[in-house]
Amino acid sequence: MATLNIPFFTTISDRFRVILASGSPRRRELLDRLNLHYEVIPSDFAEDLDKAQFASAGDYVLENAIIKAQDVYQRVKGQSDKPLLIIGADTVVVNSAGTILEKPASEQDAICTLKGLSGKSNTVFTGVCLIVGSLDGTKDPVVERAVEATQVVFGDLDDSIVEAYVATGEPMDKAGSYAYQSLACFFVKEIKGDYYNVVGFPCARFYQMLLDLHHQGHF
């Protein structure tokens, strides 16, 4: 697989211990396209925040991303000979009624979710949090955060299609019970926004966050 060799990414890899606070294979696959050396230490955060306490899905997903990044930062700081760069992310799907849809709890849950998405639009929100430790270790870490939103429009799905899709097992670890980058590509009529955000990691937004931090002198 070809990788994108951006000069300041080499600086990051040389000077920082870069950690992805997520076990998501989709996020790893996308990060692997950059010449950025990193390791994976998934957060232990239970993701049990009360959704009702947040004004919007964007606020909710961003708080999840922040807590994931902070969890790993607190566990690892003081155990490295390099300053840390922690990458935290979280993705949820919001249906047309405004309900947050995370990973399904069961096959029946996935079936109900997909039937509810049939013929309607939903919005994928991903929160991204970057925690950057100071080079000399004497300053508080810099925290950069952002939310990306992408609208996804589904075609009409009959019950047999939904049940066949759930039977593949693919929806079971996906926010919103679908994977657009795989078999659900047959169901999606249109997207408005970043395709990779729907996959689970907004690549362009992530690059811009790193570029902003670079221009601010943190890398």
Rank of each mutant, 00 (worst) to 15 (best):
F154S: 02
R145A: 05
L183F: 15
E163T: 11
G137L: 07
V152Y: 09
D136A: 02
Q181S: 14
D173G: 10
L157I: 05
Q181Y: 10
Y180A: 03
D156T: 15
D159K: 02
D158E: 05
Q151F: 04
E170T: 12
V147K: 03
R145K: 07
E144M: 13
K139E: 13
G176I: 03
T150F: 12
D156F: 09
D140Y: 03
P141L: 09
D136Y: 12
E170D: 15
P171V: 02
Q151G: 03
P171G: 04
F154K: 06
T168P: 09
L183T: 12
L157A: 02
V143C: 05
Y178G: 01
S182E: 15
V143I: 07
Y178A: 00
V147P: 05
I161N: 00
A175L: 02
D140E: 13
A175T: 02
D159G: 12
E148D: 14
S177Q: 02
E170C: 14
A167P: 07
S177C: 10
G176L: 05
V142K: 04
E148V: 11
E170L: 12
G169W: 05
Y165L: 03
K139D: 09
A184I: 09
D159S: 15
E144A: 11
A164T: 11
V166G: 01
T138R: 14
Q181R: 07
E144V: 10
V153D: 12
V152C: 08
G155F: 09
F154C: 05
Y178C: 01
A167H: 15
D156S: 14
M172Y: 01
D159W: 04
T150C: 05
I161M: 02
D158P: 08
G155D: 10
D156K: 04
V166D: 05
F154Q: 04
D158I: 02
K139A: 12
T138H: 11
Y180N: 00
T150H: 07
Y178R: 03
M172R: 01
D136F: 01
Y178P: 01
L183C: 13
V147G: 10
V153N: 15
D136Q: 03
V152G: 04
E163K: 06
S182C: 09
A146K: 06
D158T: 00
V143E: 08
L183K: 15
D140L: 08
G176D: 09
S177W: 02
Y165A: 00
Q151E: 03
A149G: 04
S160P: 07
D158F: 00
I161V: 09
E170H: 12
E163H: 10
A167I: 10
V143N: 00
L183E: 11
E163F: 04
E144Y: 13
S177L: 08
M172K: 03
P141N: 06
A175D: 06
A179G: 10
D173F: 09
T138F: 10
D173T: 06
V166T: 11
G176N: 07
P171T: 08
D140R: 11
M172N: 01
V142C: 12
T138Y: 15
P141D: 05
A184L: 06
A149R: 15
K139N: 13
